[in-house]
Design a protein around this nucleic acid. Structure first.
Lengths: 243, 243
DNA sequence: AGAATAGTGTCTCTGAGACATTATGCC
DNA sequence: GGCATAATGTCTCAGAGACACTATTCT
């Protein structure tokens, strides 16, 4: 004790053995959402190894301290591995840590919420046999690995809040999208219909979208195609939509 | 590989050695704020051991996997150890992890923001020689351990947002407090003066405070003492105050 | 023309901002 | 009374909610 207190830092670091104390396992996990065919989907992966082998869970994994320099690299690696692209929206969600969630022992996961366009990774997902988009409405019938259901719920709750005061959900759409599409996605997240007048007004006044000059034609009047303006991700409305 | 794939989970868990792979170090840290004498203060602790010995930093430490069951227990233990009480407001802030922030190697810290009344822990802090409230205005002149300055800034930014749409900052006050006190704290966090009419109106309409029937007398007209209503912590205003 | 969907006009109403005015204590 | 601070009265104005109305495509 008194010997340690006179030791200089260089000596201390040289003698330091990170394995002298038991340390939690550390993973990163991504709740990656997209919007397609009118429904919100989350990417799930079938576990190929113990524990919870065969169950579906979030893309994620241990931090390989020799291959990644920080948490962001770790989570981006996981997402790119499964989808082939970097998620255009990525935000740290929360960390979950206790001695129960993983049978191997005390473990901590740093979880992230991410959004990407369905089209951007459609081909890749189709070729990766163990990864699949799942309609969030089907989740209640599933048993996911670890506490991944809790993480997905937290991610959805966070996205709901974002839908109330930002345009962040737009990152789950294709690069070019229509107002009705965006509104429907927000309605899904918030869980109730929105006034289209209010929805348009606030987004237009904040200049969050650029008109592409193109239209999407379906049944009815064609809808103007927009893309996100630069810095739209940062914008926060002063007034929230009704919850 | 094929041998592992036919192994059952029990066997796998029995053979599993958590130390077979290098794992990050895991700590928890608390950015604990209070309000006293008209200034916002954060609790700092002088490091008694390497690395960064002698520097001041946030209360925190390694997760002792044999003594705590989850992250919340770990952070509460740290806070109680330094202050003698449980923080009435505690919220996970963010996790920071990379191979640079701690010289001992790849490390992750799960950080929290906490609030408590100055009076509630005044005595205890006075007896703990290595812990001290520091005016946040003095921080720019200090060099803190690890990335603790970044964590404090993130905690302050979070509190600023909370001040714009909630009454959460009130947890940094004594149990009984006045409207002008609360408003001043919000003004400190937001960084600009607020309209007292607006400030009162929204809080009164949301029924977030209970009148204690008591008054605080100083110079001028005595101010009514209030306490937080139950569930006040949960409340979010639909309209934010101006930033 | 009629169906379907996109987009606009416009009124109401809540609540934040601004700031003047009144209230209540102390000396 | 005069000073200091707390609390209220009241006007303006931005912007969300509601909903009727118009516009554009297709069959």
């Amino acid at each position: 004790m008194s010997e340690q207190s006179v030791m200089d830092e260089a000596t201390y670091l040289q003698q330091y053995d990170p394995k002298q104390f038991d340390s939690p396992l550390v993973t990163v996990d991504a709740a990656l959402f997209t919007y397609h065919d009118g429904v919100l989907k989350v990417l799930l992966v079938e576990r190929a190894s113990h524990p919870e082998l065969g169950k579906w869970g979030l893309p994620g994994g241990f931090i390989d301290v020799h291959r990644v320099a920080d948490l962001t690299q770790a989570i981006n690696g996981v997402i790119e591995d499964k989808t082939g692209i970097t998620a255009p929206y990525l935000e740290q969600l929360a960390s979950y840590g206790n001695n129960q969630r993983d049978k191997r022992g005390w473990s901590v996961t740093v979880s992230y919420t991410a959004l990407m366009a369905y089209q951007a990774c459609e081909v890749r997902i189709a070729t990766v046999a163990d990864a699949q988009w799942v309609d969030v409405e089907q989740l209640p019938e599933m048993t996911l690995a670890f506490d991944h259901m809790t993480i997905i719920e937290a991610g959805r709750e966070r996205l709901k809040q974002k839908a109330l005061y930002s345009i962040v959900p737009a990152y789950a759409l294709a690069e070019e999208f229509t107002f009705p599409e965006l509104q429907h996605l927000h309605e899904l997240l918030i869980g109730k219909p929105l006034q289209k007048r209010s929805f348009r007004r606030r987004i237009e006044q904040a200049n969050l979208l650029e008109d592409t000059g193109k239209f999407r034609k379906d049944a009815g009047r064609p809808a103007i195609l927009y893309r996100l303006a630069a810095d739209a991700e940062q914008y926060r409305f002063v007034r929230n939509l009704e919850d």
